[in-house]
């Protein structure tokens, strides 16, 4: 059976530490753009930790939500791309073929999650910062759209390793960089076609929902809402 990669994000675990954000930069050769460009709205973060305030002081709450490409099954970014640079893979990933991208930015407009980032300039790594670049991931030139790939290079490496060792990819064998680094194990990655995988089990959680589910994009990322605490004696309490 082909794989169908998905992710679960447990918002009850996520601490907002942003280890995932830096891990993604390190893994995927995402350049920093510098203060001036950042001020002009050109910073690139394939995964970001959104935060929303609720209420007013003193009864105020803050909610974190890591947002990355939702790898929509019904991805609005795909049909609009005139060159098939944004397209679907047989494993359900929304692939971004940099070589094909001519930079219309249409896909980014169509993406309801605003997870696509445009290269306004050629990336710069001031030497010798370039020595850190991951040779498994290509760097993107000016004019090209980029976004979270679910660390496809790691998926492929995992599949190759499994094949070399003569077994199927096992649950947990493959971790995208953000998942690997997630300090609270809030991010769980795996094969949704395997009903017993951790991500499948979590995706079935009653706390689970999809981001902007009503848009019908059919994301493969499931968010598990924050739980509440119930006092001792409260029958709902676990």
């Amino acid at each position: 059976m082909p794989h169908r990669w998905g992710m679960a994000v447990d918002l009850d675990r996520c601490t907002g530490c942003e280890a995932c954000v830096v891990a993604c930069h390190a893994e995927n050769n995402i350049p920093t753009v510098g203060a001036d460009e950042a001020a002009r709205g050109r910073a690139k973060h394939w995964i970001r930790v959104e935060r929303y305030w609720e209420g007013e002081f003193p009864d105020v709450r803050l909610k974190f939500r890591p947002v990355l490409c939702q790898q929509c099954d019904n991805a609005p970014c795909e049909p609009v791309c005139p060159t098939y640079a944004s397209s679907h893979t047989s494993e359900g990933l929304n692939a971004q073929v940099y070589n094909r991208c001519i930079g219309t930015r249409y896909c980014a407009n169509a993406c309801s999650y605003d997870v696509r980032f445009f290269n306004f300039f050629n990336p710069v790594w001031e030497k010798p910062l370039h020595l850190q670049l991951n040779p498994d991931v290509s760097v993107r030139e000016q004019g090209v759209m980029e976004k979270c790939t679910f660390c496809v290079q790691r998926i492929n490496a995992g599949k190759i390793a499994a094949k070399a060792e003569g077994h199927e990819v096992r649950d947990g064998d493959i971790s995208p960089a953000c998942v690997q680094s997630c300090t609270a194990n809030a991010l769980v990655f795996g094969d949704l076609n395997d009903p017993d995988s951790a991500v499948s089990r979590l995706s079935r959680s009653p706390r689970g929902s999809k981001l902007l589910e009503d848009l019908g994009t059919e994301p493969k990322v499931t968010y598990l809402e924050r739980d509440a605490w119930h006092d001792a004696g409260d029958p709902r309490r676990g």
């Binding site: 709205g41 930015r105 445009f118 000016q142």
Partner: peptide
């Protein structure tokens, strides 16, 4: 030559 960044375009106003 210098890149599309010379414009005022930004994330998320790509058009």
């Amino acid at each position: 030559y210098y890149g599309f960044g010379v414009t005022g375009y930004n994330w998320p106003v790509y058009w």
